[in-house]
Protein backbone atom coordinates (compact mmCIF):
# COMPACT_ATOMS: atom_id res chain seq x y z
CA UNK A 1 0.00 0.00 0.00
CA UNK A 2 1.32 3.44 -0.88
CA UNK A 3 0.46 6.89 0.37
CA UNK A 4 1.03 10.31 -1.11
CA UNK A 5 3.54 12.65 0.49
CA UNK A 6 4.24 16.26 -0.31
CA UNK A 7 6.98 18.47 1.01
CA UNK A 8 9.18 21.32 -0.10
CA UNK A 9 12.63 20.18 -1.15
CA UNK A 10 15.27 22.83 -1.88
CA UNK A 11 12.52 25.38 -2.39
CA UNK A 12 10.34 23.33 -4.72
CA UNK A 13 7.09 21.65 -3.78
CA UNK A 14 7.33 17.95 -4.57
CA UNK A 15 5.07 14.99 -4.02
CA UNK A 16 5.32 11.29 -4.55
CA UNK A 17 3.85 7.89 -3.80
CA UNK A 18 5.68 6.08 -1.03
CA UNK A 19 5.19 3.13 1.24
CA UNK A 20 4.81 4.17 4.89
CA UNK A 21 8.11 2.41 5.60
CA UNK A 22 10.00 4.48 3.01
CA UNK A 23 12.75 6.45 4.73
CA UNK A 24 13.19 10.13 3.94
CA UNK A 25 16.66 9.35 2.58
CA UNK A 26 15.21 6.76 0.21
CA UNK A 27 12.60 9.21 -1.02
CA UNK A 28 15.27 11.85 -1.64
CA UNK A 29 17.72 9.52 -3.36
CA UNK A 30 15.54 7.00 -5.18
CA UNK A 31 12.51 9.07 -6.15
CA UNK A 32 13.87 12.61 -6.40
CA UNK A 33 17.31 11.40 -7.57
CA UNK A 34 19.00 13.75 -5.12
CA UNK A 35 21.89 11.41 -4.53
CA UNK A 36 24.11 13.92 -2.73
CA UNK A 37 22.60 12.72 0.53
CA UNK A 38 24.46 9.52 1.40
CA UNK A 39 23.77 6.39 3.42
CA UNK A 40 26.77 5.22 5.41
CA UNK A 41 25.31 2.91 8.05
CA UNK A 42 22.17 1.20 9.24
CA UNK A 43 22.50 2.14 12.89
CA UNK A 44 21.82 5.90 12.77
CA UNK A 45 25.38 6.68 13.80
CA UNK A 46 27.37 7.99 10.82
CA UNK A 47 25.62 11.20 9.76
CA UNK A 48 26.27 10.77 6.01
CA UNK A 49 22.52 11.28 5.51
CA UNK A 50 22.09 14.59 7.36
CA UNK A 51 19.66 17.07 5.78
CA UNK A 52 17.77 20.03 7.21
CA UNK A 53 14.13 19.55 8.09
CA UNK A 54 12.41 22.84 8.89
CA UNK A 55 15.80 24.41 9.48
CA UNK A 56 17.39 21.87 11.82
CA UNK A 57 19.76 19.02 11.03
CA UNK A 58 18.26 15.56 11.05
CA UNK A 59 19.41 12.09 10.04
CA UNK A 60 17.26 11.37 7.00
CA UNK A 61 17.85 7.63 7.47
CA UNK A 62 16.07 7.83 10.81
CA UNK A 63 12.92 9.57 9.69
CA UNK A 64 10.12 8.26 7.50
CA UNK A 65 9.19 10.17 4.37
CA UNK A 66 5.62 10.38 5.72
CA UNK A 67 6.94 12.13 8.84
CA UNK A 68 8.23 14.91 6.57
CA UNK A 69 4.77 15.68 5.20
CA UNK A 70 4.51 19.46 4.61
CA UNK A 71 8.05 20.04 5.91
CA UNK A 72 10.72 22.15 4.25
CA UNK A 73 13.78 20.05 3.42
CA UNK A 74 17.20 21.30 2.37
CA UNK A 75 19.74 18.87 0.98
CA UNK A 76 23.34 19.44 -0.10
CA UNK A 77 22.06 20.13 -3.63
CA UNK A 78 20.08 23.09 -2.33
CA UNK A 79 22.98 25.04 -0.85
CA UNK A 80 24.84 26.55 -3.79
CA UNK A 81 23.54 29.59 -5.59
CA UNK A 82 24.05 28.55 -9.19
CA UNK A 83 27.80 28.21 -9.64
CA UNK A 84 28.50 29.98 -6.37
CA UNK A 85 29.10 27.55 -3.53
CA UNK A 86 27.63 28.10 -0.07
CA UNK A 87 30.30 29.65 2.21
CA UNK A 88 30.52 26.39 4.16
CA UNK A 89 31.07 24.36 0.99
CA UNK A 90 33.69 26.86 -0.12
CA UNK A 91 35.39 26.59 3.28
CA UNK A 92 35.62 22.79 2.97
CA UNK A 93 37.16 23.24 -0.50
CA UNK A 94 39.64 25.89 0.64
CA UNK A 95 40.72 24.01 3.75
CA UNK A 96 41.00 20.55 2.25
CA UNK A 97 38.16 19.38 4.49
CA UNK A 98 37.51 16.24 2.50
CA UNK A 99 39.28 13.30 0.99
CA UNK A 100 36.98 10.65 -0.47
CA UNK A 101 34.01 12.96 0.07
CA UNK A 102 31.61 10.30 1.28
CA UNK A 103 30.92 11.96 4.63
CA UNK A 104 31.08 15.49 3.22
CA UNK A 105 27.44 16.26 2.37
CA UNK A 106 26.38 15.23 5.88
CA UNK A 107 29.31 17.10 7.43
CA UNK A 108 28.44 20.29 5.57
CA UNK A 109 24.74 20.08 6.47
CA UNK A 110 25.55 19.42 10.15
CA UNK A 111 28.13 22.20 10.14
CA UNK A 112 25.73 24.82 8.81
CA UNK A 113 23.16 23.96 11.46
CA UNK A 114 25.86 23.96 14.14
CA UNK A 115 27.45 27.34 13.44
CA UNK A 116 24.37 29.31 12.50
CA UNK A 117 24.59 32.61 14.43
CA UNK A 118 27.81 31.43 16.08
CA UNK A 119 30.64 32.94 14.01
CA UNK A 120 33.05 32.62 16.92
CA UNK A 121 32.38 28.99 17.75
CA UNK A 122 35.45 27.36 19.33
CA UNK A 123 37.33 24.31 18.14
CA UNK A 124 36.08 22.33 21.15
CA UNK A 125 32.48 23.25 20.42
CA UNK A 126 32.90 22.21 16.80
CA UNK A 127 34.43 18.84 17.72
CA UNK A 128 31.59 18.14 20.13
CA UNK A 129 29.00 19.52 17.70
CA UNK A 130 29.92 17.07 14.92
CA UNK A 131 29.73 14.06 17.25
CA UNK A 132 27.06 12.61 14.97
CA UNK A 133 29.16 12.67 11.80
CA UNK A 134 31.84 10.07 11.16
CA UNK A 135 34.71 10.44 8.70
CA UNK A 136 36.98 7.52 7.86
CA UNK A 137 39.54 9.54 5.89
CA UNK A 138 40.53 12.93 7.18
CA UNK A 139 41.18 12.47 10.89
CA UNK A 140 38.78 15.41 11.34
CA UNK A 141 41.49 18.04 11.67
CA UNK A 142 40.79 19.80 8.39
CA UNK A 143 37.06 19.35 8.81
CA UNK A 144 37.23 21.30 12.06
CA UNK A 145 39.36 23.93 10.34
CA UNK A 146 36.85 24.16 7.49
CA UNK A 147 33.92 24.56 9.83
CA UNK A 148 35.69 27.31 11.76
CA UNK A 149 36.38 29.18 8.52
CA UNK A 150 32.86 28.51 7.25
CA UNK A 151 31.39 29.94 10.46
CA UNK A 152 33.31 33.18 9.94
CA UNK A 153 32.37 33.32 6.25
CA UNK A 154 28.68 32.78 6.99
CA UNK A 155 28.69 35.87 9.19
CA UNK A 156 29.38 38.17 6.24
Amino acid sequence: MTVTVSMTVNGEVVSGEVEPRTLLVQFLRDQLRLTGTHIGCDTSQCGACVVHVDGVSVKSCTMLAVQAENAAITTIEGLADGERLHPMQEAFRENHGLQCGYCTPGMVMSAIDLVRDRPDITEDEIRKGIDGNLCRCTGYHNIVKSIKAGAQAMKG
Partner: peptide
Protein backbone atom coordinates in the same frame (compact mmCIF):
# COMPACT_ATOMS: atom_id res chain seq x y z
CA UNK B 1 22.28 12.74 24.74
CA UNK B 2 23.60 11.12 21.57
CA UNK B 3 24.46 13.75 19.02
CA UNK B 4 22.93 16.95 17.71
CA UNK B 5 20.77 15.21 15.08
CA UNK B 6 19.46 12.64 17.57
CA UNK B 7 18.62 15.51 19.95
CA UNK B 8 16.71 17.33 17.22
CA UNK B 9 14.32 14.36 16.90
Amino acid sequence: IGDRQVRNR
